[in-house]
Structure formats: structure tokens, C-alpha cells
Simulated scan of single mutants.
Amino acid sequence: MGRLTETAHTGQPWRIHELTRDFRIEDVWSFRTPGAGPDEFPAMLEAMRTTGGLAKQPRPVKLLFAVRWKLGALLGWDKPSAGVGRRVASLRERLPDDLRDAPPGPDDDGMPLKALYELDTEAAREMANKTVHTVMHLGWVRGAHGDHELRMAVLVKPNGLFGRLYMAAIAPFRYLIVYPALTRRWEQAWREHAHKTSHAARASSP
């Protein structure tokens, strides 16, 4: 598991394709969720929220993000004027009526990626700053061995040459630090969820 080809994302009938034709695919990543069924995407999202968050990430990841936020503050990359609704329009303005009327998913001040929509098998969040407008898409698909698995796609629209150089500069940090840490954290979230579900099922059986 791990990094996948672009077709692992483009070959799925995701609703996000309707909204991101002017974005490029930066990364596609998969996460092991052994034993997962077709209806367990909402449970996986909830498990990720419970175990996620920057405060619960490994020290190298927290340090990396602390440095990034410090640079952003010094150089003005993350000012409100550079964000969604200011420098770029939110993709929520592109949502068809059925997605616009659906609950988008929970947000909080500690989560820079803000919810676009959340469905039974996919969810999407967006963020923008002076460097890039980015979308994180999560999808739930049947894997090669019959179980369902979580897939993440990162779609980006860099802000000119500066944005493209920025994305190239941070690529090694994503592949060597951020994504491996996410993999460990999210796969652990699934294992904990599966363990609790199994334990509850055994406790309720006659």
C-alpha cells in the first residue's frame, strides 16, 4: 500500500471530479483497513477524527508543521486575504444542489482544511493560502483482496510560479515524513475501531 497512480483516483466515479477539472492531482495514497465493509466509511472518518489532529501526531510531523506555520506568519502566506473566499472562491460555490444540501461534515478552528461535502463513500475538504488552493479527497473503495480501503487524493492549484516551486520544495517532506505518519496514524485508527466493534459484538452476543 502507499502511493498509487493517478488512475486510482481518476478511475473512480467520485463526485469531486465535477468540481476540480482545473486542479491537478498531486498525490494519491492508500491506507490499509483490513476487514472493512462497504458501509464503514463514516465509521472510518469518525475514527480518524478521534485519533487525528496535529497535537496527536509524531514529534517530527509537529515540528515540521510548526516551522511551516512560523514561516507562513513571517512571510504572510496564511493571511485571511490569501484564503478561501478571498484570494480564491470556495469550491462550495461549484457544488450541485444535492451536494450543497447535504451536511458538509464537522469543522473546527484547529483544522485548516474546511469541509466541502461528506457522503457515504467520499468526502472532500479545501484550504487556500498564498502558495496554493488545495483539496483533500477521501474515498472508500473495494480493494484487491475484497476488503474496502481508504484512499486519499491531494488536488492542487498552485498560485503561479511561486506556488509550483513551493509544492516542489515540500514534496520530499510529504513523502518522507507526513504521509508515512498519516499512514501509521490512520491505519491505527482503523485497527482500534475494528477492535472496539469486535469487542462490542462479543459482549452483546448471547
Rank of each mutant, 00 (worst) to 15 (best):
R92A: 06
R125N: 12
Q188G: 13
P106G: 03
S30P: 14
V28C: 04
R202Q: 11
A153R: 02
E187V: 09
T131E: 03
L138A: 10
H193T: 07
V156F: 05
A8Y: 10
A171E: 14
L71P: 01
D97L: 14
R142H: 14
M152H: 11
L64V: 05
L182P: 04
K79I: 12
V61W: 06
W29N: 08
L182F: 01
P180L: 01
G53E: 11
Y179I: 06
W186T: 10
K56H: 15
A43T: 03
D109H: 02
V178S: 05
K56W: 14
E149T: 09
G2S: 03
R202G: 12
D120M: 08
T10N: 06
W29C: 03
E26A: 06
P60E: 04
L75S: 11
P58R: 01
E187H: 09
G76D: 13
D147I: 10
K130Q: 11
E192V: 12
I25V: 04
I170Q: 08
D27H: 06
R3A: 07
Y117T: 00
T5I: 02
R94V: 09
E6I: 07
G11L: 07
R100H: 15
L99E: 13
L138R: 15
L119S: 05
A73E: 13
D97T: 15
D108N: 01
T7I: 10
Q12F: 08
P206T: 02
H145G: 15
I177P: 02
A102E: 05
V61P: 02
G35W: 14
R92C: 08
P206E: 12
I25D: 07
Q12I: 03
E122Y: 09
K70E: 01
W140T: 08
S204D: 09
K79G: 15
E192G: 15
L74I: 06
R184W: 05
A102W: 14
V135E: 00
W77C: 10
G163E: 06
P180V: 00
F23H: 04
V88W: 00
K62S: 03
R125E: 03
K196C: 13
L95K: 11
P104H: 07
H137F: 13
A203D: 00
G163M: 01
G53A: 13
K114F: 03
L75W: 12
F162V: 12
E46Y: 04
G143W: 12
A82M: 12
T10C: 08
M136D: 12
A201C: 11
R21P: 04
R151C: 02
A169S: 13
G35V: 10
D98Y: 15
L95R: 11
R86K: 07
L165P: 13
A82Y: 11
P42G: 03
A47W: 00
M152P: 10
E126P: 09
H148L: 13
G139W: 08
T197Y: 09
A115R: 09
F162T: 14
R185V: 05
R164W: 07
M127R: 03
A115F: 06
G52M: 12
I170V: 12
V88S: 02
S30M: 00
P106M: 05
W190K: 05
L75A: 07
V61K: 01
L19G: 01
T134K: 01
G76N: 06
A43K: 05
S30T: 05
A47H: 06
K114S: 02
K196S: 15
Y117N: 01
L95I: 08
P104S: 00
V84M: 08
R86M: 10
T197V: 14
T33A: 07
A189Y: 07
V67S: 02
T183H: 05
